[in-house]
Design a protein around this nucleic acid. Structure first.
Lengths: 194, 194
DNA sequence: CGAAAATGGAACACGGATGTTCTAATACGG
DNA sequence: CCGTATTAGAACATCCGTGTTCCATTTTCG
């Protein structure tokens, strides 16, 4: 239990860690609902003073960058959980889709906030993106995925259908699981080998 | 040629009509590239003074409303051109998709700028939206369109795939016709009766 | 050509978001 | 419990987009 000086340069007090999370979570909610919301809005949603937000993220761009890093990490974890190497490609794609769907608002941000795709460490191609494309290509090689369409295009199709499912749930009030199963149904047909 | 007093309350000088169009067109380009661009940006892109923009559209919201009306009108025309009542539903859907694709940036705005869906005369359901849903339902009745999926969902699928095709062309540099044919290919499979 | 229409540009007032600094109050952890 | 870490809130300077007004200049059109 001799854990006196655990602190390294990158370690944070437990309280600080909690507040930081609160701010990041609130930022996801607020910004995904309305891009260009003010930092005051984020602060309020986080139940925190506006100055406190600035104490953790000096500039707005710092907050955005942190959000980017956060979603990136979760994307990575989701990709691992989906065990993309196991079994036939279509099944793996469905698992991946399911995991991604769970990320909800966080991924919406990735689409909606333009700064993310170019900014914040997303250098055009995320690791997860590459994994997804490779998975599709594996399916095409297996003959279980449509070979008439470009792998990159099919990747975009997957993202788009996910986005559509979220929209369906958010704006039309469709239950999440209903939207998800519609999404998977259509995705299965769209990716199927012709 | 006794056309002296053609002018009614709603008629515009030819010059004014041209500048108005220039501003609207520039606004589409600029705003679809970067939401929240300043009116100065729009003015510059239109090759026009910032004051002139305000002379035509007093407030920002007026410009947005005008853009909304514009895209709405074009959507209407595109729907007419597609002759949705003719022939089997899947074919009609493809024609519709093709017409919509031509609207390009203008429709991108409809997705990206949140103010449009609630604001600017879009009362939740556009006429064109209703036409689309009815067309899908007709296909389901004919047995030529997937009946396992909700018509509303399939409508969203169509929009999403269109959006994906645009993205593919804009961000990945895929030629427009290539993106379009990929889109149609996938859409055909996605909508097909199971 | 000459009057009316249309424009460009400068200048200004205004509001809202941002980022900074300070101080008093509060929560935390040993 | 007490000292320290953490916070809230007010106050302030600043920047940027917006919307308005005014005037000189250019363009259009009869």
């Amino acid at each position: 239990m001799e854990q006196h000086h655990i602190a390294t340069a990158t370690t944070e007090s437990a309280t600080r860690a909690r507040t930081r999370r609160a701010i990041l979570d609130a930022a996801v909610t607020v910004l995904s609902a309305h891009h260009g919301a003010s930092l005051a809005d984020v602060a309020e949603a986080a139940g925190v003073g506006r100055t406190t937000v600035h104490r953790y993220f000096a500039e707005r761009s710092d907050l955005v960058a942190a959000l980017g890093a956060d979603v990136r990490e979760r994307l990575q974890e989701a990709t691992v959980r989906a065990r993309v190497e196991d079994g036939p490609a279509p099944k793996a794609l469905e698992r991946l889709c399911l995991e991604y769907f769970e990320l909800g608002d966080r991924l919406m941000l990735l689409f909606d906030v333009p700064q993310f795709l170019s900014w914040a460490g997303f250098e055009e191609e995320t690791d997860s993106d590459r994994v997804l494309v490779r998975l599709i290509e594996r399916g095409q090689a297996e003959g279980t995925v449509d070979t008439e369409a470009d792998a990159e295009w099919l990747q975009n199709v997957l993202w788009s259908l996910l986005y559509a499912a979220w929209m369906q749930a958010r704006d039309y009030g469709t239950p999440r699981h209903t939207a998800l199963s519609s999404c998977l149904h259509t995705l299965r047909k769209a990716l199927a080998a012709s």
